[in-house]
């Protein structure tokens, strides 16, 4: 028997969709393995963030694209129950087809008419080989496509930053560039925790701040290629007292 009148806090769905490049080039240099690993690495952190969020019901899906595009995880799945099956590579880069597939799911229905902004994450190491523009248009023609927080991650140096930027839809945020497996882990952890949180609990803006290009403010992305230990930004100066390190006021 409930001890108190009322029930659980009402939530809104927050759809989170991975859109993953599985083209042949992803098999080079262990990129697909790094991607599989980075997503596995991020899932427990994502589950924790979702668990601590009382306002959102986080539901995850994944699309993969190569010569065609298909749902890798088709059912919107609560993060705690989300299982990752490793992606394998083959063929070309049907990124446009992948976006059309996502667009189908951004229509109402199957989308509910009340939700938090969806988060769409596009990961790719190359150039689309199909009609990217048509796929993007299909997505951006839909209200939920426009409202979605769109993040893109360039895997390696050969990714087409131009299309990844077009996916974001404005130039105030850049695609994230993951040139090393550690960077990919950081990027993926960041989208699945910090961006996820921002989509349901956007940080408020101080008065006079420039209007947002996104419909929720996105926190600063993680620093890539961590600086060697000791060389923190601002130089070798005590962060409390501004004295040169070792600071004589801190440690004596």
């Amino acid at each position: 028997m409930a001890k108190r009148p009322g029930g659980e806090l009402a939530t809104r769905p927050l759809h989170f969709i991975w859109i993953c490049d599985c083209s042949g080039s992803m098999s080079v240099d262990g990129k697909i393995q790094a991607l599989n690993n980075a997503i596995r690495e991020a899932l427990p952190h994502m589950a924790k963030v979702a668990d601590e969020n009382p306002n959102a019901e986080v539901l995850v899906r994944a699309v993969k694209f190569s010569s065609g595009a298909t749902w890798h995880v088709s059912q919107p799945t609560p993060v705690a129950a989300f299982k990752w099956t490793d992606l394998a590579t083959e063929g070309e880069t049907a990124m446009g087809k992948a976006l059309s597939l996502v667009a189908e799911q951004m229509q109402i229905p199957p989308m509910s008419d009340r939700a938090l902004p969806p988060v769409l994450v596009l990961l790719s190491d190359g150039q689309p080989t199909d009609d990217f523009a048509a796929g993007l248009r299909a997505l951006m023609d839909l209200p939920w496509g426009k409202k979605a927080v769109r993040v893109s991650i360039a895997i390696g140096q050969d990714a087409d930053l131009d299309v990844l930027q077009k996916f974001i839809g404005h130039t105030e945020r850049k695609p994230l560039q993951a040139n090393r497996p550690e960077d990919l882990v950081r990027c993926i952890k960041w989208v699945s925790t910090a961006v996820l949180t921002a989509a349901s609990r956007p940080a408020s803006q101080v008065k006079g701040a420039a209007p947002l290009a996104d419909n929720v403010p996105i926190p600063a992305p993680p620093a890539m290629a961590a600086p060697p230990s000791g060389a923190v930004q601002g130089g070798n100066v005590c962060r409390i007292h501004g004295e040169p390190e070792p600071c004589k006021i801190c440690v004596w």
Partner: peptide, 27 residues
């Protein structure tokens, strides 16, 4: 209010009418 009612004091019909609860809608 959340303690006793497990809901927000300003979330009623107006919240129900909002489709995408983004920053603009929340403001």
């Amino acid at each position: 209010f959340y303690f006793f009612h497990t809901g927000h004091p300003l979330e009623g019909q107006m919240e129900a009418n909002i489709k995408c609860l983004d920053l603009k809608a929340m403001n």
